[in-house]
């Protein structure tokens, strides 16, 4: 792929937490537009940190991070909020407001486009209300529009969360362990939804996954992290199942010297 299509570029990115823990170390990585990237690794390997540096929920402590060729590390205030608006995110625990209706939760994904007083009073435009309906329809949750979130199952909640993220009209979708709290059946539905966004809407997807088999089923490209370092990066065609012993074993050796970043 040509360099023109590079959407996210990690340039020697470092992340050290205030208490001294190393979150990310020497990350060099290029994500292309329209890719579906699965990030695999043990818990604590830095997967969540990696995702959260992209929408600046975590700040990096060294190196540079570019989106569409522009460095985002210095963004503040309005610029930062516009960046976050263009990056959707879904979470392991869905992070919905349990006591509000599905509709209100989905509309809240649109906050980035409104002034605070308008969004607080619920003054969303008719256009955005329609947008919410369309987003819910896409994830097959329209019939729950007026239901309270705490009456939904986990899988349904995650799909509402996807609809909320869609409201941002994002270019990039970050999915932080989207299926870790779900049962196998709803897992497929949620992953299919993510794949749909990627293939039909052309949204670039980065998903942290625990399961290698799911990663191999859905992703175009798999990257592996261990101890905050990039230890694996291959397009799906070159991936073979036993590559992952290195990522998931406690030994430091990396199989096959797979890093090409």
């Amino acid at each position: 792929m040509s360099d023109e299509s590079v959407l996210i570029e990690f340039d020697n990115v470092q992340k050290v937490y205030p208490n001294g823990t190393v979150g990310l170390k020497d990350i060099n990585l290029k994500i292309h537009e329209g890719e579906f990237v699965a990030v695999v690794g043990l818990s604590g390997a830095g997967k969540s940190t990696l995702l959260r540096t992209i929408n600046r929920m975590h700040d990096i402590t060294g190196g540079d991070l570019k989106i569409d060729g522009a460095s985002i590390t210095g963004y503040k205030g309005k610029e930062l909020r516009n960046l976050r608006r263009s990056v959707g995110m879904i979470f392991q625990d869905f992070n919905l407001v349990n006591r509000s209706s599905v509709r209100r939760n989905v509309l809240s994904g649109r906050v980035g486009y409104y002034s605070t007083w308008k969004s607080s009073l619920g003054l969303f435009s008719a256009e955005d209300k329609q947008r919410a309906v369309d987003a819910l329809k896409r994830v097959n949750m329209l019939e729950k529009l007026y239901t309270r979130v705490d009456e939904l199952s986990g899988g349904q909640q995650q799909r509402v969360a996807i609809a909320r993220a869609l409201m941002q009209e994002p270019k990039i979708m970050l999915a932080d362990e989207p299926i870790a709290s779900l049962d196998p059946l709803t897992t497929t539905a949620v992953m299919d939804d993510l794949l749909g966004l990627n293939q039909e809407l052309g949204i670039t997807v980065l998903a942290n996954l625990h399961s290698v088999s799911l990663a191999m089923k859905y992703a175009d490209r798999i990257i592996g992290l261990r101890g905050g370092q990039l230890v694996y990066d291959k397009p799906i065609a070159e991936v073979s199942a036993d590559d992952f012993d290195g990522i998931y074993s406690e030994q430091a050796e990396i199989k096959g010297g797979a890093v090409n970043g």
Partner: peptide, 14 residues
């Protein structure tokens, strides 16, 4: 998209 597909909102909630 037409409104028919929207679920009914109960009177009390509306």
């Amino acid at each position: 998209m037409d409104k028919q597909q929207l679920p009914q909102r109960p009177f009390a909630q509306k």
